[in-house]
């Protein structure tokens, strides 16, 4: 089972995970990751994220199906924000259910690497009156390269 949602408003990861658990059921192992906006000691005042409406979600679904196949997951949830976020607000949530923990850990890790380096999002960091468009770091691409066996989504 795969659930993907692009959220235009702030979301509650606990509520999302609970609702997903109700729908997907318990598989044995569940791993959840939540990424939030870092304040960077007060330097970052917010984050803006945009996507390609419709297409971004379709491609996440394609990759999500590939991740489920690759790791033999029972269920995968992806929630990703767009719009303006304040420090501390959640940006992304990935939850994987599998029969055993290794598959669930790797499924979440693989999906996150895709979201960081290939998914169609554009992210701008707000620093008071200044702002900067953020691009993946070399480390992000190295991390993503670990999953070569998972089919690459078309941009």
């Amino acid at each position: 089972m795969l659930a993907v949602r692009i959220a235009e408003e702030s979301f509650d990861p606990v509520a999302e995970e609970k609702a997903f658990l109700c729908t997907a059921g318990i598989a044995g192992a569940s791993v959840a990751f939540v990424g939030s906006v870092r304040a960077e000691q007060g330097a970052v005042t917010g984050l803006e994220l945009e996507c390609w409406p419709g297409r971004t979600e379709r491609l996440i679904r394609e990759r999500g199906e590939a991740v489920i196949d690759r790791f033999g997951l029972d269920a995968l949830l992806v929630v990703h924000r767009v719009g303006t976020m304040a420090p501390g607000e959640p940006i992304v949530q990935v939850v994987a259910h599998a029969r055993h923990r290794r598959a669930a850990f790797e499924g979440v890790d693989c999906m996150m690497d895709y979201l960081k380096t290939e998914a169609l999002f554009w992210k701008k960091e707000l620093r008071g009156d200044d702002s900067e468009w953020i691009e993946p770091r070399a480390q992000d691409y190295d991390d993503a390269a670990r999953w070569e066996g998972v089919s690459r989504a078309r941009h």
Binding site: V92, L115, K123, E135
Partner: peptide
Amino acid sequence: IAFMPPVSGG
């Protein structure tokens, strides 16, 4: 035709 700078999510 879409013009896309480097992506960055998560």
